[in-house]
Write a protein that binds this DNA or RNA. Structure first.
Lengths: 270, 270
DNA sequence: GAGTGGTCTAGACCACTGT
DNA sequence: CAGTGGTCTAGACCACTCC
């Protein structure tokens, strides 16, 4: 879409912000270029510091610029995004029947989170909990039935910020034949969740993934080290077995500026 | 995730906002409940109007509340989301070989945008344009080669706001055998893009969809009637034929509070 | 008409950056 | 050290809603 003009009805702060935004979109202001200072804007537009400030705020909330104490605001350079493709589901399945050394060759953070960085602090929490109404309905069990909850957290050791976060729910009765599946010290499990399910006789037939986006809270911004104007993407994944029964439900969240999702839909041939 | 506490280092506005946010998450403040007024907050927290105002701003930017002139701010009720599932790709393909009356039974806005509302103003713009570098590379053509660009816009006739927007690019040389494909008055084409491609001998083998999210600009907020704190989701879709060549590239955007995406990944059986 | 939130003024002080 | 952006005060006026 082309740069758009600001209607005459817009407030002064919006006019200022859009003037700068159009300069960014046209390339007059390149990534990392310094923006006008608050005093500049006050002089140019004959406005108070509050209005100049608000204009800068708007641009930051749109994810277009960064700003910080003492440093001039700058046009935000788009960060590299990790790609997370739906084809890893089939790849994981293909590995299930391989001998353990081959399965173990792929790290858990790679299979479960699509991120393959080495120097990360990885932690897993297992517990048994009772299914609430939504979860019970999804998993075709009774409300209050026992489910294994697994929480996977990956953090950058230097900053302590999250790199990845996800939680997974599996009905206890489906997997209780294999007690190792309740032991978090077995993580990272070679071959991932699909191999774990295979040890109790479950073959997956498909994954159904729901994708949505929302803004992070201020607390999430801190925990993830997210800048203003960056949405969170949430993926709810249902793992469906070959009898069309949902055997696992998981939720994953991540900042939209760090990950891009790819989904491949294969069509049957004529 | 559980409600989190505000660190002591947070600014006053953030503390106020988080105090309210936690009340919302705990259910102390139900959807549509009125929030404390600016004067309330000034009195309770002994702060200036600017700080009270900023706290409300933060919550609006997080998409948690709505506010407007003369009306008290309220906890935002989650709107209904339209579901847009990847299975419609196969369904569309299955319809291609049907006789025209059956194909025409499904509206274009339904097939292309996943939205099936009747009273919408639908408009299509066709033009021939030259491929830029990115597009040329994706479509395996030379930069500057002619491509058919089609823009689909759906608007609510009362407000004039967008309901759906997408653009599509197809290399001219792939489809020039059928001149009807360059005539926008043929829209809505019964059977959609897959049938159009079939008229020039192209069968699709898969779709590759990249999903990302970002904040809307102030102009997009106006054009779509989007409230603060609602991200835009962007889907770039590559239509791949049975020889693994990309024959069409399309971009779709929509507000994250109105649409939810579903992707189904089928796995091959053991 | 009273009360709400939206916008704005005209300052102040602070933390931090870069030179 | 000067200059930046971050936070905040203490107001003002306006448009709008609801009673």
């Amino acid at each position: 879409m082309q740069p758009k003009q600001t209607p005459a009805t817009a407030t002064l702060a919006v006019q200022i912000a859009d003037d700068i935004r159009i300069k960014i979109e046209r390339g007059d202001l390149q990534p990392d270029a310094e923006l006008p200072t608050r005093l500049d804007l006050q002089a140019t537009w004959r406005c108070s510091s509050t209005v100049a400030r608000h204009a800068i705020d708007l641009l930051r909330q749109q994810g277009l610029i960064t700003s910080g104490r003492g440093r001039p605001s700058r046009v935000r350079a788009k960060p590299e995004r990790t790609r997370r493709t739906s084809e890893r589901h089939q790849e994981e399945k293909d590995r299930v029947l391989l001998p353990e050394p081959d399965r173990a060759a792929v790290g858990v953070s790679e299979t479960d989170n699509g991120v393959s960085i080495d120097d990360l602090k990885f932690s897993t929490t297992y517990d048994l909990t009772k299914a609430n109404e939504t979860l019970a309905q999804l998993l075709s069990i009774k409300e209050g039935e026992s489910v294994l909850r697994r929480i996977y957290e990956t953090k950058y050791p230097d900053s302590g910020h999250y790199c990845a976060w996800s939680e997974s729910y599996i009905p206890k009765k489906l997997i209780e034949q294999n007690e190792k599946l309740f032991d978090s010290t077995e993580e990272p499990w070679p071959g991932g969740t699909q191999h774990q399910l295979w040890t109790v006789g479950i073959e997956l037939g498909k994954f159904i993934e729901d994708v949505s986006a929302r803004m992070p809270t201020t607390v999430e911004q801190q925990e993830w080290g997210i800048e203003d104007g960056v949405p969170m993407i949430r993926v709810t994944r249902k793992s469906v077995d070959t009898q069309d029964k949902i055997v696992e439900v998981s939720h994953t969240v991540f900042p939209a500026d760090r990950v891009e999702l790819t989904f491949v839909t294969n069509l049957t041939r004529w």
